[in-house]
Design a protein around this nucleic acid. Sequence first.
DNA 1: TTGGCGTCCTGGAGGC
DNA 2: TGCCTCCAGGACGCCA
Length: 264
Amino acid sequence: MPELPEVETIRVALEPLLVGRRIERTEILDERLTRPEPPAAVAQQLTGERVECVQRRGKYLLLRLESGRVLLVHLRMTGSFRSENSLHTRAVLELDDGTSVTYRDVRRFGTWLLLDEEDVDPYLTARLGDEPLERGFTLARLAGRRAPVKAAILDQRTVPGLGNIYADEALWRARVHPLRPAGSLDDEELARLRRGIRNALRAGIARQGATLSDYAAPDGTAGSMQREFKVYGRSGEPCDRCGTPIEKTRVAGRGTWFCPSCQS
DNA sequence: TTGGCGTCCTGGAGGC
DNA sequence: TGCCTCCAGGACGCCA
C-alpha cells in the first residue's frame, strides 16, 4: 500500500524518466482511472505535453506540465509506475526519447486527475494538512477528538501521507495504544507521537519503502522497510522493546498491530 | 461536527 | 483439483 515513503521513492525514481520529456502518445486502458473524465479526453490533453517536474503532496504524485496543468496521481492500494510493460497495465505514457512509462494497478482503485494550475492548491488544501516531514507539522487537530488515535492520525487532514502500516509503526515508537481517544493524549505523548510519525516515515524513505505484495519502484526494485517493522504484521512475535507478544486488533476497520504492554 | 460503516476492486490464502 | 469464502485497505459518501 503506497504511503508517503513509497510515493516519495516513486517520485524520485520517476524524475529522471519523465522530467524534460514530451509525451508523444498516451494510452489509458481503464476507464475508471480518470473518472469522471473520459479516458480519451485525458489522454488527448496529456499528449504533446512536456513534463516540467514531478512533486509529491501526501500520497499524491503531481506531474506538472508545460501548459501549467497538473496531473494528480493517487496510487491508492496497488497503483505503481514501471519503466517496463507489466501485468495489470492501466495506462502507458510514450515519451519523445523512445521510452515509455507504464502505470499498473491490480485493484484499480488508483486515480488520475488532470487539473488546471489554479485548481491544484484548493483541491489539495481541502484534503491534506501540513506535510509531516516539514518543520511546521503539528498534531493540533487531535485536540478534543474522541476517536481512537489511530483513526485520527489516518485522517489525511491530520497527517498527510500516513497509512495503516506507518500509523502502527509510529504509535509503537511513541508508546501510545492505538485505541486511546485522540484527545486524551497529553503534551508529552503528543510530542512522542509527532517524533514517532516523522521517524517512521523517514525510516521508510531511507529504505525505499516497504514491499509486501505489489509495491516496487519503477525499475522493479523492492523496498526493505518491511524488515524493520516493529509491529505491523507481527502477531505473536516478541516486542523488540519488552518481549511481550505483539497483538492484533481492528481500529477504524483496519488491521492494527501493537504491543499490549509498552503501548499504553 | 464527529465517528462508524459500506463501497469499490482483485488476488491470494485457507477450508472443504 | 476446483470451488467458495474471507481478507487486505485508501478515500469517499452516507447516516446517526
